[in-house]
Design a protein around this nucleic acid. Structure first.
Lengths: 188, 188, 188, 188
DNA sequence: TATGAATGAGCATTCATTCAT
DNA sequence: GATGAATGAATGCTCATTCAT
């Protein structure tokens, strides 16, 4: 990817996290990225497109991070545990402002082909996990999307609240919460 | 509450759900509410105040709806089940655009006294449920906030995705998901 | 004059001195005067009219103050001296915000009959002074308006700068300045 | 100076003279200057800044005009006479709306360093004149600021009233008034 | 390609004025 | 007479976008 495009995306990400959506101007982005305002329009159609692409950019990053250190020969529970910790680390280390996710979710939707592909790619390891779990009768027989909401969403939510300072989550509490999430999808 | 103020709040709620936070102008609100632009400023200090007050307004509504048909002499599981259905109904019937919640979370926070009171009021029945469950050894021994994230958040998230059309949740799936959430907080 | 009208005028005068012309709103005036906004329009046609009438009101006050302690049997120099001190006192005591005069001078002019009358009334003692001075060959043979600019205007200007803090004028300097103004109109 | 900035300043000057301070909108200025409204904000921080800078701009112009054709080897009286005529010409020719001065005096003050410098620069020739006159015992021993109010202020005031049409000043009257002002500062 | 000055529609907000009570 | 809620045009200002260089 062009150096400038990358810098613009990173500037946008930073400013979005700092000032929120309605406090983000193209001139700010240009200044932060060290390019001229007009230059942004060489890489992005308009402001919406910039935000769309940033969304995908972050999603791509998250896709990689989420599956880090997760291999197919690991036991299911360990894979799940690792993924949850990956989510937690991403959020708390701030290297991916998942915190902003909320903002993206409320953007006017773009249901492009690449969008779908990217999201599939994000969940391929997750789908695999759930499929295997259901196949061996370990997990409840629910759609992967629902299993995801039951198990991974709480981790995201916890991380978000922790980072936003709503309440603090200790390491022990985190471990317990991950275990509880596991209980949610487990066949009892 | 003054008729006009109520109408302004409802117009804001509707437009926020429809156009999102950026895309909401005071003139739009005025038009939708059937009042003059200046009139808004008789009831709200500025745009932020309008959004703050809307937040509280919705929160108050949610507080009431969430605890509807929940009485202290019901078994714990039934109470939990009812609350989850209350969330689901609120979201799907659209009479409270819980969907918007995400937007409020990203507003510059106001930590007023009333704010805290309102949020406590919202969770009083929930706190009670979790406290009783932990007391009789039925629930995991975790902070109420974490139990809430583990059990109620998935219901919210599911409803949101259902309403937003990300995927459809059948009645059976909903029931199964509620049971799964129950599993998450249960001591096994 | 009606109690309310008087209160409105005084409120306007005070606020005008404090906030300047473009910082004066009818609601402010109403609040300061302790009346409802609509009440102002019972006594004044519109905002301009309020300012016009305030102008006249102040002029009338100045007319009285300027000629205070000035009687026709006093020597010319003493009369002049007294008037200059009257100007100085009015300005420095702040009981008539002559300081604001500058603002009035730049209002869209109204050349009404009463306006002319009032201004004549203001200068009747001054005219008399100049007329007598010229008649006995003591003063330069110039139009009264010019004599006024040469002799009284410096006093006003001095007082204004003193009050505004541009520079401070000691009692001795004031006396010397009055004497110098006298020199300006004297036949040498 | 940028062409556009110059045009904006001149438009402001013109409109200020025509409509007064309240009655001056940024859109009017933009239209008169032949630029877009937003363009003004490239050169001026806000409306106040525009007015501040206009103040300085005019002051700079006045500084130059006031001292025109005044050289140090001219007799004191001739220098004074020339300055008074410079003031008169500036005002009556309308190339510098001294008339507006009154409005600036009522603006919220900015006591910047450049401001002070500019005003000193404006009066350097005047100070010199007064200093010399006092040194050789020709002038009264008063502060330069007071001498200025006594001698130059009447010229300004006269010009202002002449231009505003309060009364007309003939050439002879002007000469006589200048002589009278000279008398005011002269040691008798 | 890259620039950044220029644009002008759009925004939040104010305020002189009206009018039903 | 007096009120003050309501109005809506107008304001100062921002900012996504364009385009001549």
């Amino acid at each position: 990817m062009s150096d400038k495009k990358e810098r613009i995306l990173q500037a946008t990400e930073k400013l979005l996290a700092e000032y929120g959506f309605h406090g983000l101007s193209m001139q700010m982005v240009a200044k932060e990225a060290g390019v001229a305002a007009g230059t942004i329009y060489r890489y992005f159609e308009d402001k919406d497109d910039l935000l769309y692409q940033l969304h995908d950019h972050i999603l791509g990053y998250v896709a990689i991070k989420l599956s880090q250190n997760v291999s197919d020969d690991m036991p299911l529970k360990q894979r799940f545990h690792t993924m949850c910790l990956n989510i937690w680390e991403m959020a708390t280390r701030g290297d991916a402002p998942l915190i902003n996710r909320g903002q993206f979710d409320n953007l006017p939707r773009r249901d492009s082909h690449e969008q779908r592909l990217l999201e599939k790619q994000l969940f391929v390891k997750v789908d695999q996990l759930f499929d295997e779990g259901k196949a061996c009768g370990l997990f409840k027989n629910l759609d992967n999307e629902i299993l995801s909401v039951l198990s991974l969403e709480p981790s995201c939510c916890l991380a978000r609240k922790h980072v936003n300072g709503v309440f603090k989550v200790s390491d022990e509490a985190l471990e317990a919460a991950i275990d509880a999430s596991w209980d949610a999808i487990l066949q009892h």
